[in-house]
Lab assay of single mutants.
Amino acid sequence: KELVLALYDYQEKSPREVTMKKGDILTLLNSTNKDWWKVEVADRQGFVPAAYVKKL
């Protein structure tokens, strides 16, 4: 499975999103959308801005 690194803190703004902290390592589930990537963090799945994460 592919992992991404959170480059910035992100606070979810809708139930479809997830909160992450800078430095978090997240499991990447889907990166087909260039703006929003689906990730899993702490047993929750949701979207984060693609610009806020980097593939490892």
Rank of each mutant, 00 (worst) to 15 (best):
K1F: 14
K1S: 09
K1C: 12
K1V: 15
K1I: 13
K1Y: 14
K1N: 10
K1W: 12
K1A: 13
K1P: 13
K1M: 12
E2H: 11
E2C: 13
E2I: 14
E2N: 14
E2K: 10
L3I: 09
L3T: 09
L3D: 04
L3K: 12
L3M: 12
L3Q: 11
L3W: 14
L3N: 06
L3V: 08
V4C: 13
V4M: 04
V4T: 02
V4H: 04
V4P: 00
V4D: 00
V4A: 10
V4G: 10
L5N: 02
L5S: 05
L5R: 09
L5A: 06
L5W: 07
A6H: 01
A6I: 03
A6G: 03
A6Y: 01
A6Q: 02
A6M: 02
A6D: 00
A6K: 00
L7Y: 04
L7W: 04
L7T: 05
L7S: 02
L7A: 03
L7G: 02
L7K: 06
Y8I: 09
Y8A: 12
Y8H: 13
Y8Q: 14
Y8N: 09
Y8E: 11
Y8P: 00
Y8W: 11
Y8M: 14
Y8D: 08
D9I: 02
D9P: 06
D9N: 09
D9V: 03
D9F: 05
D9H: 06
D9T: 06
D9Q: 04
Y10P: 02
Y10D: 01
Y10N: 00
Y10E: 01
Y10M: 00
Y10L: 02
Q11A: 12
Q11V: 14
Q11T: 15
Q11G: 08
E12W: 06
E12G: 15
K13T: 12
K13Q: 15
K13M: 13
K13C: 10
K13A: 10
K13S: 10
S14H: 11
S14E: 09
S14I: 04
S14D: 13
S14Q: 08
S14R: 09
S14C: 09
P15R: 11
P15F: 09
P15A: 12
R16S: 14
R16K: 13
R16Y: 13
R16I: 12
R16L: 14
R16P: 06
R16D: 14
R16F: 13
E17D: 06
E17V: 05
E17P: 05
V18C: 09
V18N: 03
V18M: 12
V18G: 02
V18Q: 03
V18W: 05
T19H: 05
T19E: 04
T19G: 10
T19A: 07
T19C: 07
M20Y: 01
M20A: 02
M20G: 00
M20S: 01
M20H: 00
M20W: 00
K21A: 09
K21G: 06
K21R: 12
K21L: 08
K21T: 10
K22S: 08
K22P: 04
K22W: 03
K22F: 06
K22G: 06
K22L: 06
K22I: 06
K22V: 08
G23Y: 05
G23T: 02
G23W: 06
G23S: 03
G23N: 08
G23P: 00
G23K: 02
G23L: 02
D24F: 05
D24S: 08
D24Y: 05
D24R: 03
I25N: 03
I25L: 09
I25E: 04
I25Q: 05
I25V: 12
L26T: 01
L26W: 04
L26K: 00
L26R: 01
L26C: 09
L26Q: 01
L26N: 01
T27Y: 13
T27K: 12
T27L: 13
T27C: 11
T27W: 13
L28W: 01
L28S: 01
L28I: 05
L28Y: 02
L28F: 04
L28D: 00
L29R: 04
L29F: 04
L29Y: 04
L29V: 13
L29E: 03
L29Q: 04
N30L: 10
N30T: 08
N30H: 08
N30W: 08
N30Q: 11
S31L: 05
S31N: 09
S31E: 15
S31V: 07
S31A: 14
S31D: 15
T32M: 10
T32S: 15
T32E: 15
T32F: 10
T32H: 12
N33L: 09
N33V: 05
N33Y: 09
N33P: 04
N33D: 15
N33A: 10
N33C: 10
N33G: 11
K34A: 13
K34F: 08
K34N: 12
K34D: 11
K34P: 12
D35R: 15
D35K: 14
D35H: 14
D35W: 15
D35P: 03
D35C: 13
D35M: 14
W36Q: 03
W36F: 07
W36T: 02
W36L: 03
W36Y: 08
W36E: 04
W36I: 03
W36C: 07
W36H: 03
W36N: 02
W37M: 04
W37T: 03
W37Y: 07
K38L: 15
K38T: 08
K38E: 15
K38H: 11
K38F: 15
V39P: 00
V39K: 00
V39D: 00
V39E: 00
V39H: 00
V39L: 05
V39G: 00
V39Y: 02
E40N: 06
E40H: 07
E40L: 10
E40I: 10
E40P: 00
V41M: 14
V41D: 12
V41P: 01
V41H: 15
V41Y: 13
V41C: 11
V41Q: 15
V41F: 13
V41R: 15
A42E: 13
A42F: 15
A42Q: 13
A42I: 12
A42V: 11
A42M: 14
D43R: 08
D43I: 07
D43V: 06
D43W: 08
D43Q: 10
D43M: 09
D43S: 12
D43F: 09
R44S: 05
R44V: 07
R44F: 05
R44E: 04
Q45V: 15
Q45L: 08
Q45H: 10
Q45E: 13
G46D: 00
G46W: 04
G46H: 02
G46Y: 05
G46A: 03
G46R: 01
G46E: 02
G46V: 05
G46K: 02
G46F: 08
F47P: 00
F47D: 05
F47K: 02
F47V: 07
F47L: 10
F47E: 04
V48A: 03
V48Q: 00
V48R: 00
V48E: 00
V48K: 01
V48F: 01
V48P: 00
P49I: 03
P49H: 03
P49N: 03
P49A: 02
P49S: 02
P49T: 02
P49V: 02
A50M: 06
A50G: 05
A50Q: 06
A50C: 07
A50F: 02
A50S: 15
A50P: 04
A50K: 06
A51C: 11
A51L: 12
A51V: 10
A51I: 12
A51G: 12
A51H: 13
Y52P: 01
Y52D: 03
Y52W: 07
Y52S: 12
Y52M: 12
Y52K: 07
V53K: 00
V53D: 02
V53Y: 01
V53L: 15
V53A: 04
V53F: 06
V53N: 01
V53R: 00
K54Q: 15
K54N: 07
K54H: 11
K54P: 02
K54C: 14
K54V: 15
K54A: 13
K55D: 05
K55C: 09
K55N: 08
K55A: 08
L56F: 11
L56Y: 09
L56K: 04
L56W: 09
L56G: 03
L56T: 07
